[in-house]
């Protein structure tokens, strides 16, 4: 009787998983059928380049049509880093780590300029190529993280001061809202770049797309500083 009871318990869990899988498969099948009838994606694909001036349609949706959602995401990162920096005590404890060979130290010399160039490229060419402010900012934030893991936290904080990181992150949030108000000044809604009276430039050039380039740079700096600050706050402890 006990054995039957245990078998029933196992079968119960497995059948729950299988039922969830069947339910999800059914739902996603229905959603896939719905998405083919939507007209909004057709509008974005056919008229996105003329309306926003950005070739990369993902960036044009993120920073022009739906830029208010990007403001929300930026606020989430700002809140998380502020609360972490507030909660974690500032006493420093050295990581008990391993001693690296000279190969790792020599690789650091090559990989840090590569990360810096790649991050800047992803941020500046966000409206022409795949990439954008978030990904470029995370690539830039990898530089202090790699320095912290390889050397120690004192060296990383000597190279990138915590006060400067906090200042950059706060400036990023404030400049995002100020650029959004710039859309109201030019005669349109909050955070509007394509619909306002700004010159969009020729699609395909580096300086084009109105506010999208400025928003990319600001989001990149802000996300990079925020991620580095979160990591350095987590590494300190009791």
């Amino acid at each position: 009787m006990i054995r039957i009871n245990e078998m029933f318990k196992k079968l119960y869990k497995i059948s729950l998983v299988v039922l969830l899988a069947i339910f999800l498969l059914y739902v996603f099948n229905e959603i896939h059928d719905l998405a083919s009838k939507s007209y909004l994606s057709e509008h974005y694909i056919s008229k996105g380049v003329q309306e926003t001036g950005a070739i990369n349609l993902v960036t044009s949706v993120l920073y022009d049509y739906r830029s208010f959602d990007t403001l929300g995401e930026a606020t989430v990162i700002l809140t998380a880093s502020a609360i972490l920096a507030f909660l974690v005590p500032l006493r420093k404890v050295a990581m008990h780590g391993t001693k690296f060979l000279i190969i790792v130290h020599q690789t650091m010399i090559f990989i840090v300029p590569y990360l810096a160039v790649l991050g800047s490229y992803l941020i500046l060419f966000g409206h022409l190529n795949p990439g954008g402010g978030f990904v470029g900012g995370v690539v830039l934030a990898l530089i202090p993280i790699v320095m912290t893991i390889t050397y120690c936290i004192e060296f990383s904080e000597y190279k990138f001061k915590p006060n400067i990181k906090t200042l950059l992150e706060d400036l990023g949030s404030i400049c995002f809202i100020i650029l959004g108000l710039f859309g109201i000044v030019t005669g349109s809604n909050f955070l509007a770049s394509g619909q306002s009276n700004l010159g969009l430039g020729n699609p395909g050039e580096l300086i084009s797309g109105g506010l999208i380039l400025c928003l990319n740079i600001i989001i990149g700096i802000k996300v990079g500083a925020g991620m580095a600050k979160i990591f350095n706050s987590l590494i300190k402890g009791e």
């Binding site: 990369n56 993902v58 992803l122 795949p130 990439g131 995370v138 934030a141 990898l142 990591f231």
Partner: peptide, 19 residues
């Protein structure tokens, strides 16, 4: 989907592993 591929590469292989 190159944009999702870039985000996946940077965040999964770089950031999450470090954390």
């Amino acid at each position: 989907a190159p944009s999702a591929a870039l985000a996946e590469a940077v965040i999964t292989a770089g950031l999450t592993t470090g954390f």
